[in-house]
Amino acid sequence: MLCTLSNAQMRLSPDNNEVDASLIKDEVYEMRWSVKSGDTSNDIGKVITKIKNNGDKVLITSEVKRYNSAKRWVDTTIVTKADLKPIYHASYNENRDMVINYGAKTEGFYKDKTKREKITLNGEYPTSFDSSMYPQVIRWLPLNDNYTADLLVFNFNPSGKTDVLNAYVKEVSSTSYNNKDVWDVVVTDDIVGGNVKTHYYISKEDRSVLRMEVNMGAQSMIMERI
Rank of each mutant, 00 (worst) to 15 (best):
residue 70 A to K: 15
residue 44 I to Q: 05
residue 9 Q to V: 10
residue 27 E to L: 10
residue 73 W to L: 05
residue 124 E to V: 15
residue 178 N to V: 02
residue 194 G to N: 14
residue 140 W to A: 03
residue 90 A to K: 01
residue 184 D to F: 01
residue 34 S to P: 04
residue 213 E to I: 06
residue 223 M to Q: 10
residue 165 L to W: 05
residue 125 Y to W: 12
residue 51 I to Q: 06
residue 11 R to E: 15
residue 28 V to A: 14
residue 62 S to M: 14
residue 50 K to C: 04
residue 115 K to E: 15
residue 59 L to W: 13
residue 206 D to G: 07
residue 140 W to P: 07
residue 131 S to F: 09
residue 47 V to R: 07
residue 222 I to D: 03
residue 202 I to M: 11
residue 183 W to H: 14
residue 51 I to A: 07
residue 104 A to L: 12
residue 116 R to A: 09
residue 160 G to V: 00
residue 66 R to V: 05
residue 119 I to S: 08
residue 21 A to G: 01
residue 188 T to H: 01
residue 155 N to Y: 08
residue 87 I to E: 13
residue 183 W to Y: 15
residue 76 T to K: 00
residue 189 D to P: 05
residue 37 S to D: 10
residue 74 V to Y: 00
residue 189 D to T: 00
residue 148 T to V: 11
residue 70 A to V: 11
residue 42 N to Q: 15
residue 212 M to Y: 07
residue 22 S to P: 04
residue 146 N to P: 03
residue 99 V to Y: 01
residue 12 L to F: 10
residue 55 G to D: 05
residue 28 V to E: 15
residue 60 I to K: 03
residue 191 I to P: 02
residue 190 D to I: 02
residue 97 D to L: 03
residue 43 D to I: 08
residue 21 A to N: 13
residue 35 V to C: 00
residue 175 T to F: 08
residue 221 M to K: 09
residue 81 K to E: 05
residue 122 N to R: 10
residue 123 G to Q: 12
residue 218 A to N: 15
residue 119 I to N: 10
residue 186 V to K: 15
residue 182 V to N: 02
residue 157 N to V: 05
residue 74 V to T: 01
residue 56 D to P: 07
residue 85 K to N: 09
residue 22 S to F: 08
residue 47 V to C: 00
residue 72 R to E: 00
residue 6 S to T: 14
residue 8 A to W: 10
residue 82 A to W: 03
residue 150 D to P: 00
residue 50 K to W: 07
